[in-house]
Design a protein around this nucleic acid. Structure first.
Lengths: 342, 342
DNA sequence: TGGGGTAACCGAAACGTATCGGCTGAGCGA
DNA sequence: TCGCTCAGCCGATACGTTTCGGTTACCCCA
């Protein structure tokens, strides 16, 4: 069923059928109606292939994910993010092309390929790094892109969620219940969001007039959390609370702390970041900061489509990340609270 | 950079350039070489759009996922499965088009659309149900497909993993350490793999001459596991072991059992299915059966591409699911073992 | 030396759509 | 009544590739 069949059946030229079906001016309402009826009757649906070639558009967006499988597996971000993206694309007759890359060089190659193949009209940029090699590449390829939580000066539009607010509310809660030494387990180095979260932690403490506790290096993994726990407990003047860069790290840390005979939250409060479902299945349940991946996905898709259409685009903000208090955080231990008085 | 440019620059006809670059016979080796050099020099990469239209192929495969977000989030299957699929597609210059559907009717619509848009050359069928409405639809649309763990008589080729073997080794282990009443929490009704797992459990017990313990209805969720725990503990002649249809259910069940004051595995052994990373983070760590989603994805992609190429295809088997013994299972409680003697 | 065969190459058409310039005829004003 | 205008429609072309039938020109053999 092509537009040729429709035109023939309706007794008009192909161009007339095209104009009529695309709601462009230049056809009388009567013929437009007739062509529509014929098209419906024949079950005509325009071929994306033909449209692509003619319109010089792929009608598809690209997403290259490059994450460690272990991290990916425990990451709630993707399912929800994809759902958000899809919710927008469907209505606009766009499709999503997904690529998986194992390592960074591989990922660059995927982008290059997507561009030279002309398979997609634009791409999503997740997990942005400082000096991200994808940025100059995409600029070079002239491929529209949209970033998630991009840093200042980012050359593409971006969807931002205020993580500082989430971290701040967490820090303020901890301060409110008596903690004064609050540590941080960072994410993997090189990622913008690792830096954003660490900076937010540091600034929130500074705003409250407190010295930052130790910042322990993490890598977003469970094992990284366990290692951080071992280092944390060896620190002189041990912190009474720890904010981890993500939930998985927090879970690893919490598990290890418990193995070493300490109580969470009585001896030490632990908080994660992301709001993964699993956090509510643990004992104690994990305090975390809930992000909004579905909204981020939807906004990103909207932004990218607008950018492709050449519309003027500016960054958009989604609701700030929200504190989700659960059992793994609580008042600072009395012993610690008394220390200053002695 | 189109093939027209290459042909012009090489001083040959477009058709000659096409033939040369596609390694078809009919060009002298000398001109072929020259055309190749020009193409390299110009960085020519054929446009998938043009190829698609001409070859009447999309050079893309479709995957429609329709799962509850909560299940999807905790499901390790997807990341690894996609990785497997991608590993094959990349080498063959195929792309993966991903769609998310919230409900069943929605999913059908996505398939219909993928087909009529001619966006994909074939689709993957995950989470097959009994009397799956997608099957007649795809047959009707003449869209090639490949199923995962499809039932007998399935009209499309399928990738199978022997789940019976995994369940059997689990059952046999439990019997070996003294359990005689082994319950099962099923998956959501209507799914083939729910039935497969339940049947495997039932048959393994029968083979050992044991009566099946109660089969409690589950739904693949954490909450479903908790509900199953409540029902389980109310059963007369309480089972000493439970095999759950997936890990998430097992985690819910185990958590609830512990809340109710019983010990896992001392009072009751609990096993899951899937081998999710998270299972090793719990206390006790979760005994499970590891599947091989990456291999399944790779085989499925291979199979589907062959089917599209019109090659004769037959079902393929991947390595049987493997038992992963951890802490949540152990010997049957003594008290129970003695009961028969009184 | 002429005819047939074939390797090497070319031109045109096809895939399905959108667009642009041109043509027709009806309506209107002078 | 003539000419102009414009709505409504058509034909041709473009997008980038593959394929198929046709045209050379060379070689070989009779």
């Amino acid at each position: 069923m092509t537009i040729v069949d429709v035109a023939a059946r309706a007794g008009v030229a192909i161009s007339t059928a095209s104009v009529a079906l695309n709601d462009r001016p230049g056809v009388s309402e009567a013929t437009r109606q007739r062509i529509r009826e014929v098209a419906d009757e024949l079950g005509f649906i325009p071929s994306v292939r033909g449209k692509s070639l003619s319109a010089r558009r792929a009608f598809a967006l690209g997403l290259v994910v490059q994450r460690d499988t272990a991290v990916l597996e425990a990451d709630p971000f993707f399912g929800a993010f994809l759902g958000g993206v899809e919710s927008i694309l469907t209505g606009r007759d766009y499709a999503l092309v997904l690529q998986m890359a194992m390592e960074s060089a591989d990922a660059l190659q995927r982008y290059r390929r997507l561009a030279s193949d002309r398979r997609v009209d634009g791409v999503f940029l997740l997990d942005i790094r400082t000096d991200d090699a994808r940025v100059p590449l995409l600029q070079d390829l002239h491929l529209p892109a949209v970033g998630m939580n991009a840093p200042d000066g980012f050359p593409f539009p971006s969807v931002r969620q205020d993580h500082a607010a989430g971290i701040a509310s967490l820090v303020n809660y901890l301060i409110g219940v008596g903690h004064t030494r609050i540590a941080h387990v960072t994410g993997a180095p090189g990622f913008i969001h690792t830096e954003q979260r660490e900076a937010a932690w540091r600034e929130s403490l500074a705003a409250a007039g407190l010295e930052p506790g130790p910042a322990l290096p993490g890598d977003f993994t469970y094992e990284g959390g366990r290692r951080a726990a071992d280092r944390l407990l060896g620190v002189a003047d041990r912190p009474t609370a720890v904010i981890c860069a993500n939930d998985l790290t927090a879970i690893g840390l919490m598990t290890r702390v418990q193995e070493l005979g300490l109580s969470v939250p009585d001896d030490i409060s632990v908080a994660g970041y992301d709001g993964i479902e699993l956090g509510s299945y643990l004992r104690p349940t994990l305090t975390t900061v809930r992000t909004a991946p579905a909204e981020i996905g939807a906004e990103a898709a909207r932004l990218l489509l607008d950018a492709i259409d050449g519309a003027g685009v500016s960054d958009v903000d989604v609701a700030a990340a929200a504190l989700q208090l659960r059992e793994s955080t609580g008042p600072a231990p009395r012993l610690t609270a008394r220390t200053p008085r002695t």
